[in-house]
Design a protein around this nucleic acid. Structure first.
Lengths: 149, 149
DNA sequence: CACAATTAAATTGTGCACAACTTATATGGA
DNA sequence: TCCATATAAGTTGTGCACAATTTAATTGTG
């Protein structure tokens, strides 16, 4: 036996999971300076993206879109509310639900966020076709992993 | 104007970054039941993978392999030490360094972790060629994003 | 109607990530 | 040699993720 890595042991840089973990953190880090200008974290930005598509949304609906539970969303939404970007209102029709509405400031922020994804795509160093294929493969992978529970 | 999503606004499910964020969390979630049996979290498992390749490693070396800083690693290593899997010892040659050694229990755990990556690959629902290409593309993307800082 | 089961959101507790700062040690010139 | 600079690790504080639990409102069924 030698000092070389054991052949049967999993090797870090061979692992897809680590590649995704690293890529995800690198992408979030690349977003950070742009999001800093908006005063948002990356998960807060994701919530705003969903609301910019359609609002109001209940906490449960936001959670379904993003795959997050109320344990993550409740405090996050409280911070967005204290930033003056959203308002949380109990639904009159169903008192269990909390509807998250955009404020005028929250709606206005959309304009300043428009260019962000393109700036990341530029920094990615991949062709548009590669980016598209990567996104498609990841989406399929995510669905398969969720299905195999 | 209609109620439809604004065409110029970034759409969530078109965004590569969200695809990576979701895929990374789904993969970690798929690992969780297997890692629960070992008593490890996913980042702890990553540290053990590095040590199984070669040990001892300093905190700085671990951080370079994994892209993590001492703010993350110091408490994580303290937890691994309290689990009896590693020992932290000040380097005699350089008193600033802390060398992380595997204990016998830490070394032995490797055997129980061997099959884990294959089980995830099976659940991924992608062909080996797709998995390999995905990993390669992600690695290239991570490098590009780090380079563009 | 009554009431058990379900659903929605919040809360509590643990463990990352990461920025900012602190402490201690080492190193490279003037 | 002296000491400014750099480096290694730890600490503090904020904000996710996520499991487990709690509280409150709603729904389905006898």
């Amino acid at each position: 036996m030698t000092d070389a890595p054991r052949d049967n042991a999993p090797r870090l840089n061979r692992q897809l999971c680590f590649a995704m973990y690293s890529a995800s953190r690198a992408a979030t880090a690349a977003y950070r300076p742009m999001l800093d200008e908006l005063g948002l974290t990356y998960p807060q930005y994701l919530v705003m993206l969903v609301l910019w598509e359609d609002e109001p949304r209940s906490v449960r609906e936001l959670g379904e879109e993003l795959g997050l539970d109320s344990g993550t969303l409740s405090p996050l939404l409280k911070r967005l509310e204290s930033l003056g970007l959203v308002e949380r209102r109990r639904s009159a029709a169903d008192e269990r639900r909390v509807e998250v509405h955009l404020t005028d400031a929250g709606t206005a922020l959309s304009a300043r966020a428009t260019g962000i994804p393109q700036r990341l795509a530029d920094a990615a160093g991949l062709s548009p076709a590669e980016l598209d294929q990567l996104r498609e493969t990841l989406t399929r992978l995510t669905a398969a992993l969720h299905g195999s529970r």
